[in-house]
């Protein structure tokens, strides 16, 4: 009986957590890359002690423009990781603006300078 209760408890929690996730992220990591450190970044999770750059903006395209490229700087080193966040709100914005307004939520970490 107790086991069933416990299992139900866990199922409810997992369902709740699932419904709360109305958006998702895709993170790409360079397997041999060493991230640029930031000892002052005390967030929990993947970015802890990493120097992370966050981009949270809306890109507006003109009538004849179809795509865009974000120009970011990591020196001559390259990226350690890039995370793109897809949100339901962002999708709606794109749909209702006929693809002219793109919500962009990105986090990236550069490679540590090799010396």
């Amino acid at each position: 009986m107790k086991l069933i209760q416990n299992n139900l408890k866990l199922c409810c929690i997992l369902l709740l957590l699932t419904f709360l996730q109305s958006c998702y992220s895709v993170r790409m990591v360079n397997t041999s890359g060493v991230p640029q450190p930031d000892p002052m970044n005390n967030v929990a999770g993947f970015y802890r002690h990493k120097a992370v750059t966050k981009i949270d903006t809306v890109i507006k395209l003109k009538t004849l423009e179809k795509e865009f490229t974000l120009l970011e700087k990591c020196g001559d080193r390259g990226f350690h990781s890039v995370e793109y966040r897809n949100t339901f709100g962002g999708l709606l914005r794109s749909v209702f603006s006929f693809g002219k307004k793109k919500t962009v939520q990105i986090k990236y970490v550069c490679l540590k300078e090799s010396n």
Binding site: V29, T31, S32, G45
Partner: peptide, 12 residues
Amino acid sequence: LAEIFWDAPHQG
């Protein structure tokens, strides 16, 4: 060795 003992992200 480096590939087997790889990254361990913060998990709380």
